[in-house]
Design a protein around this nucleic acid. Structure first.
Lengths: 394, 394
DNA sequence: CTGGCAGTGTCCGGAACCGGACACTCTGTC
DNA sequence: GACAGAGTGTCCGGTTCCGGACACTGCCAG
C-alpha cells in the first residue's frame, strides 16, 4: 500500500477530467492531496491502493445518467470495505430524495455542485479532525518476522511473488499461512481478483481466473482435484496458492499425483511457533501495542519471567493462540490465566470422554478433591467417581 | 405509562389543528392510532406519557418559522430520550440542506408535504415492521442488580463495553444474557447496527459489520463456525457477543477451537437466580411496581413469609420465571399459586448425565441426526450412541 | 475421652455396556 | 443397471461398570 506523508489524502470520484483538474489545484492550494477516479471500478482500486482519509463522491458517471444509482452503489461498496470511511457526496443532479438516500446509505454529508471552495474545505477539515479511526490498524496484515527460519521463507515468497508459479504453503494451524499468501498476492503483478476457496466446501471450481487461494487443499474431493489439475494445465491458468496444515509428504499421499505435479513445484513451510522463539518476542511486542491501541486499554506489564513463560509455552494454534492470549491480557489487565485454560485444546471438537474428564477434574478441583461432594455434584456414586479418577489419572 | 392495545401508536407533531384532524382520520382508517402535539414541549410530554412506536415530525411550529431549527432540536431531544425511536420528518418548507440536516440528526426518513397517503402509510408500516426491539424490553432495559455476584459480572461487562472485544455470555435460560448483551452494545462506542443471529437457524453470516448478537452459539453449524472464525480474524471484524446456556467447558468441547480462541477471551457467566437471593428481593420489588403500573392494578401485599418462599423457590427459567410469577400475582391479586406449578422443573445441566445428554443431543442436531458423524465427533461407536439415544429419548 | 459425622478406599455379584459383525437402504456416479 | 460409498438398526458373547456394603480415618462438639 502506498503511504503518503502526513498530508491528508482524498479520493475524488468524478467522471469529468476538467473537474478533476480544477479540484486537484484547489485542494493542493489548501494543503490537501487528492487521487482521482472516474468511475466505480477505478475508485475501488484507488481505495485499495492508497490510504484514503476521505472520499468526495459524485453520484453519476455515465453520460446522461442522473439517477445517482451508480454512486449510491459505489458508496455502499466503499463502506463495506471500510465502514468508518468518511464519504461526502458532491453532486449536481440532486433533489431531496437523492440527498436523503445518500445520507441513509451512510454518507457523512451532502454538498451540491457547484460548491463553495471555502465551505467545502472547512467541511473536509472538520470531518478529518473528528475522525476516530487510527490508520495504524492496516499495519496488522504485515508478517511479523524476526527468526531466521521465517525470514528465509518470506524471502523465498517475495522472490516468487511476481511470478505466476503455483505455491503450496504448509504449516500448522495459526502459523500465518494466510498472511503469507496474501503477501504474495499483494506483491504479485496481478493484485486483484483474489478468490478464496475452502477445500472442505468446494463443489466446483470458479470460472474466473485471477488468484485462487485454497485453504485445506487436502480436503478437496478427488473430482475437484482432477479438475484443478486440468485447469492448471491450461494456458491462462489461475495463480494458485494452496494452504495446508499437512506436510509435503502427507500431501503427496493425499492429493492427486497430477495435481501435486503442478502445485508442488514450490512448497513453503512455516515452522511451528514453538520452534522460533525470536518471533514470539517480536509478536508479543507487536500485539501488545496493537491491542492496547485497538481497545483503548493499557497493556499489562511484561517482565522477564513472564516473557520466558510465553516463550516456553506451547501454542497449539501458533500465532493465533499467542495473539488471543495477548488480547486477553490487554482486556483483563493481567497475564495470568485460569488454570483450566492451560489445557491444550488443539484439534477438533473434543469427545465425550474429554468432556467427562474435564468436568470430573473441574468438580474435583472445585471441591478440593473431596470425592463425596464432587460425586454428588456430578451425579455419580463415589465408586463410580473413583473409577473415573483412575481412568483419567486424577 | 398509558398502554394502548395492539395497534401501533404514532406521535404526530404539527402546529396546525386542521392537519392534525385530517391525519387522525386518515391513519385511523388504516389501523394506526395517533396522539398529537402542537409544539416541542407537548411532543416531549406525549412521548413520555405514551408508548409511542413512531413519530411524524414537522419541523416548524412558530408562525412564520421556516428554518426547521425548532424541529431539529426536538428531534435530537427525542432521540436522547429514546435512541431507537423511529422519527420520520414530514415538512413543507424543505430543501436539500434541511433534508440532509434532518437525516444527519437521526431522522429515519424524510417526507415532503403534501404527502401521498398510501406512500406515507406504507413507509410507516415498513419502519414498524423492521423495528428491532420490542417496546416492552426497552422500558426494562436496565439490569436489575443487587447481588455481589451479578454486580461483578455487570461491572466487568461495563468495563469491556467500549472495547471491541468479542464476549461470550453464559448462563441458564432466562438469566438475563440478552439484557446484558444489549447493555454492552448500548454502552459501546458503536451502538448501532445490532444484528441478531440465531445459532440454530443461521445459514450464512451477515455481510454487514456492526454488532452481532448470537444466541445459542453452540448450535452454529461447523461451516458457519469456521466462517465466523475467519470473519473475526479480519481487521474490521464485527463486534460479536455470543450467548449460550452451556458453560465454558462445554463450549470448549463443542465449538471450533479457532472460533473459541477468538470468542472466549472474555467469558461472562451469569449464575442461576437460585444462587443470588439478593437479586430476587430487588427483582420482586421492581417487577411488582412495573406490572402494577403496566396493568393499572395494585400489587398484592408482600410479607416476610411470602418473600422468604420466593427466595427459597427454584426458578427453572430464572428471571423469566420470576417475572411471570410476579405478573400473575399482580393480575390475580394473590401470591398463591396452583399446586401443580410448584413442581420443580429440570434445571440447568449439572450432572454428568445431564451434560452427556446435552452433548449427545447437540451433536445429533449439529449433524442432522446423522448417527455415524455424531458418534465420530463424540468419540463413541454407533451402537454406544444408539444406546444413549434410547436412554435419553432422543 | 467419646460419640457422631463426614469422608476415604476397596470389594464383588449382578447388571449394563461394549463393539465387531451382519443385513439392509439410499444416493450418486459411471 | 451396476456398483461403490455412506449410512441405518440390531445382535450377542465378552467385558466393564454398577452401587450397596464394609472397614477404616480424622475432626469436632459435648
Amino acid at each position: 500500500m502506498v503511504q503518503h506523508n502526513e498530508k491528508p489524502l482524498l479520493l475524488f470520484v468524478d467522471d469529468d477530467p476538467d473537474v478533476q483538474s480544477a479540484a486537484r489545484l484547489m485542494f493542493r492550494h489548501r494543503g490537501l492531496e487528492i487521487v482521482c477516479a472516474h468511475d466505480g471500478q477505478s475508485a475501488m482500486t484507488q481505495l485499495a491502493a492508497h490510504a484514503i482519509d476521505l472520499v468526495l463522491l459524485d453520484l453519476n458517471y455515465s453520460k446522461g445518467a442522473t439517477s445517482g444509482a451508480e454512486g449510491l452503489a459505489l458508496l455502499k461498496d466503499m463502506l463495506i470495505m471500510r465502514p468508518d470511511l468518511p464519504v461526502v457526496v458532491v453532486t449536481g443532479h440532486s433533489g431531496v430524495a437523492i440527498a436523503v438516500a445518500a445520507m441513509r446509505a451512510g454518507a457523512r454529508d451532502f454538498v451540491m455542485k457547484p460548491w463553495n471552495n471555502e465551505r467545502l474545505v472547512n467541511l473536509i477539515e472538520k470531518i478529518l479532525a473528528s475522525r476516530p479511526v487510527e490508520r495504524e490498524t492496516t499495519t496488522e496484515h504485515a508478517m511479523i518476522v524476526a527468526s531466521a527460519a521465517l525470514e528465509r521463507v518470506v524471502a523465498e515468497a517475495d522472490r516468487l511473488a511476481p511470478t505466476r508459479a503455483p505455491i503450496i504453503i504448509c504449516g500448522p494451524p495459526g502459523s500465518g499461512k494466510m498472511l503469507l499468501a496474501r503477501r504474495i498476492f499483494a506483491l504479485s503483478h496481478d493484485a486483484e481478483n483474489e478468490i478464496l476457496i475452502h477445500g472442505e466446501e468446494c463443489n466446483e471450481l470458479p470460472e474466473e481466473q485471477g488468484n485462487w487461494l485454497i485453504r485445506d487443499v487436502e480436503a478437496l474431493t478427488p473430482t475437484i482435484q482432477r479438475r484443478l489439475a486440468d485447469r492448471l494445465e491450461m494456458v491462462n491458468a489461475p495463480r494458485v496458492i494452496a494452504l495446508s496444515s499437512l506436510g509435503r509428504d502427507a500431501l503427496d499421499a493425499r492429493l492427486d499425483p497430477k495435481l501435486m505435479l503442478h502445485l508442488a513445484m514450490v512448497v513453503l513451510t512455516i515452522t511451528p511457533l514453538d520452534q522460533r522463539p525470536d518471533d514470539i518476542i517480536t509478536l508479543v511486542s507487536h500485539f501488545s501495542h496493537y491491542f492496547a491501541t485497538r481497545h483503548g486499554l493499557p497493556a499489562p506489564d511484561m517482565d522477564d519471567i513472564c516473557l520466558a513463560s510465553l516463550k516456553a509455552a506451547t501454542w497449539p494454534q501458533n500465532v493465533r493462540s499467542l495473539r488471543a492470549r495477548i488480547e486477553r491480557a490487554v482486556l483483563t489487565g493481567t497475564w495470568q490465566v485460569p488454570s483450566l485454560e492451560q489445557h491444550d485444546n488443539a484439534g477438533g471438537p473434543t469427545t465425550l470422554h474429554d468432556t467427562e474428564r474435564m468436568l470430573v477434574e473441574a468438580a474435583l478441583r472445585k471441591h478440593g478433591f473431596n470425592v463425596t461432594q464432587a460425586a454428588r455434584e456430578l451425579g455419580l456414586t463415589r465408586p463410580a467417581l473413583y473409577r473415573r479418577m483412575a481412568r483419567y489419572g486424577l
